[in-house]
Computed example of a mutant assay.
Amino acid sequence: MSNIYMPERGEILSIVQESPIEWLFKVKTTIKPAPGQFIQLSIHMVGEAPISVANYNHDEEWIEFLIRKVGKVTDAIFNLQPGDSIFLRGAYGNCFPMDTYSGKRVIVVAGGSGTAPVRPLIKHFIDDENTDIELIFGFKDQESILFKKEIDEWRKKAPMILTVDKGCGIDGECVGLVTEYIPHLKMYENFDNLEVVIVGPPMMMKYSALEFLKLGIPEDKIWVSFERNMSCAVGKCGHCKIDETYVCLEGPIFNYVKAKTLLD
């Protein structure tokens, strides 16, 4: 029986700045995640932290992580350079139900760093002729916009609303919160062919979901992703527990039917 706590060594392939506070780390690893899962990244004698998977390539054996300095572990990660080693264990948690989404109209609403965990999902469906994907992205300001080159490409292939909370919208960006634009989406009577994915800060997910409910979208058609203080990642430590739910085991992807009772 394998040790569920045992990490493997990975090599940092590249580090790219995405915003003033967020950097994209590409790591060589044999771990094969699915969209929506997370990995525990660790540095010897420092600690470990759960990081969402921002992209991956199973054939080339690498995973990308969007990381900002928010504590002891991430501070140490920012001291690393390409060629240095980092330890990984996982992948953990459940994933987006890709088969459920396939062939349907999928509306993705993402705020800030919440664009990272939905990035593999978008890449999977953006060129799928059988799946209609629509995107709403919200960022604090112009400097905070992530994955700009990819967003420009996605804009050519799918309906998109890109909004900043404050400042001036340029190059086609709107101004305001994502919740302001959800009511303007065109809805159809057949909700069987619709799935909604919302990822971002807890309050953003809560009020975005409420806007979709106002449009008549059934609760079971809405999906969210929780970023919680995972520690062991295998349901032993209780750090991620909300009531009786272990986010690391039952999540981080939840259907709103369950998530509405867990939103902080």
Score class of each variant (00 low, 15 high):
Glu134Tyr: 07
Met204Gln: 05
Leu185Tyr: 07
Asp141Pro: 02
Ile133Cys: 06
Trp154Phe: 15
Lys214Leu: 07
Glu180Pro: 01
Leu177Thr: 12
Val197Phe: 06
Asp171His: 05
Asn190Glu: 10
Glu173Gly: 00
Gly114Ala: 09
Asp165Lys: 00
Pro159Lys: 14
Tyr207Gln: 14
Glu129Lys: 00
Val106Phe: 00
Leu146Asp: 04
Gly216Arg: 06
Asp141Asn: 14
Phe137Thr: 03
Val175Met: 07
Leu210Cys: 02
Pro183Arg: 11
Ile133Trp: 01
Glu219Val: 10
Asp171Ile: 00
Met187Ala: 05
Arg228Tyr: 02
Pro218Asn: 03
Trp154Ala: 02
Ile145Glu: 11
Tyr207Val: 15
Lys186Met: 13
Asn193Arg: 09
Lys157Glu: 15
Phe147Ile: 09
Glu134Thr: 08
Lys157Trp: 13
Gly216Phe: 11
Glu227Asp: 06
Ser225His: 08
Tyr181Trp: 14
Glu150His: 01
Cys240Trp: 03
Ile161Thr: 14
Asn193Ile: 05
Ala116Asp: 12
Tyr188Arg: 14
Lys149Gln: 09
Arg119Phe: 14
Glu150Gly: 01
Tyr181Pro: 09
Thr115Tyr: 10
Phe139Asn: 12
Glu150Ile: 06
Ala158Ile: 11
Pro159Leu: 08
Thr115Ala: 15
Ile151Asp: 01
Pro117Cys: 14
Leu177Trp: 13
Phe226Pro: 01
His184Trp: 13
His239Gln: 13
Thr179Lys: 14
Pro120Ser: 10
Val178Trp: 08
Leu215Thr: 03
Phe137Lys: 01
Pro117Leu: 12
Gly103Ser: 05
Pro183Leu: 09
Gly111Met: 02
Ser231Leu: 09
Arg155Ser: 04
Lys156Phe: 11
Ser225Glu: 05
Val197Asn: 07
Glu195Leu: 03
Val197Arg: 08
Pro201Arg: 00
Trp154Leu: 09
Asp128Cys: 03
Ser225Pro: 01
Phe139Glu: 05
Ile145Cys: 07
Val109Tyr: 10
Lys140Val: 13
Glu211Asn: 11
Val196Arg: 02
Ile126Trp: 03
Tyr207Thr: 15
Ile161Asn: 11
Glu219Tyr: 04
Val108Asp: 03
Gly138Val: 05
Lys236Met: 14
Pro202Asn: 03
Met205Lys: 12
Thr115Val: 15
Gly138Ala: 14
Trp223Phe: 12
Met160Tyr: 04
